[in-house]
Design a protein around this nucleic acid. Sequence first.
DNA 1: TATTGTACTGTTACAACATTACACCCTTGA
DNA 2: TCAAGGGTGTAATGTTGTAACAGTACAATA
Lengths: 168, 168
Amino acid sequence: MHRNPDPRGTCAHEETHGRPVDGDAVESRARAYAVSKGVPFTPMRQSVLALLAASGKPMSAYEIAEKVSDARKLKAVQVYRALEFLQEAGCVHRLASRSAYFACDHLHGERETAVFMVCAQCGAVQEAASELVARGLRGAAKTTGFRPRHPMIEVEGECAECAGTPER
Amino acid sequence: MHRNPDPRGTCAHEETHGRPVDGDAVESRARAYAVSKGVPFTPMRQSVLALLAASGKPMSAYEIAEKVSDARKLKAVQVYRALEFLQEAGCVHRLASRSAYFACDHLHGERETAVFMVCAQCGAVQEAASELVARGLRGAAKTTGFRPRHPMIEVEGECAECAGTPER
DNA sequence: TATTGTACTGTTACAACATTACACCCTTGA
DNA sequence: TCAAGGGTGTAATGTTGTAACAGTACAATA
């Protein structure tokens, strides 16, 4: 997991990568979810989401704790709690391959298969929803009786910008 | 990561799951790789691979360290070293979604896309190579200029046996 | 107003996963 | 003989994630 001391943001294009997602849209979704659950959309949740949306790149919980610009210094456990809510709300996803979290302004249906393409160099995440992949998955599953649950897959690779940059 | 204290082997079908992979085949591959690299296929590497092949299920490095039946008690770091070699050799894969490692007797070509279906209940892994998924991935990648590197994707779900078992 | 219930916050402690660093021991080959 | 390269053993540490518990805020209700 630590093959690269900081797998996020080590690329020459660091500044141009990680295009911010639509912070307002994503926050509205979170607020709507909070209302639907009858729980508050607290400043803590708002700060974490805003940071992730603005950065537009995956960040570890500890990185988030450091960077949330707030007088107080957050503990990781507090960040995890906010992330739990935001993941339930569908505004944030966890990248298992990097143990990192990122904001996402797409709405993923139950039947959809989201493909997250993670750049191994700069850590930027691009998203796609491929019907072909979804069908392939269903086909592969059918032959074994397997029932896919979380239609979210991660693919490592190299983004267009980093591919054009031989060495950073 | 610790949502389930032992995500591997908590299913009623524990004994029948995790069919062993072909230990001999997988060991030959490891030996061939060792020869090609001019490094030895040591007893340490052999034990770890044999355990994984026999169990046929993903195991954490610490679990491997405990279970390697050897006079000595292995430290995690020793297991990680063996796993590193075995992954390079293509005999063992890491399941990012579970931080676990498993032996695999398939040979994955550079262009192939391996799909690993992981049962959320019993932890068993089933494998498929879907051309449809591969094409879908290439298509999704093409639109963004992304270049997939590690054609290995993980899907969580429920295996046929566990699906037939409402509660364990 | 007082009480109660619910959910968030802050803090400590710890469990699980993974790497770094270093000393030592082999084997191979000059 | 001895230097080089790689494997092993060991300790220490870093990173990621949870559990448990006390305190706080706020709304609903008596």
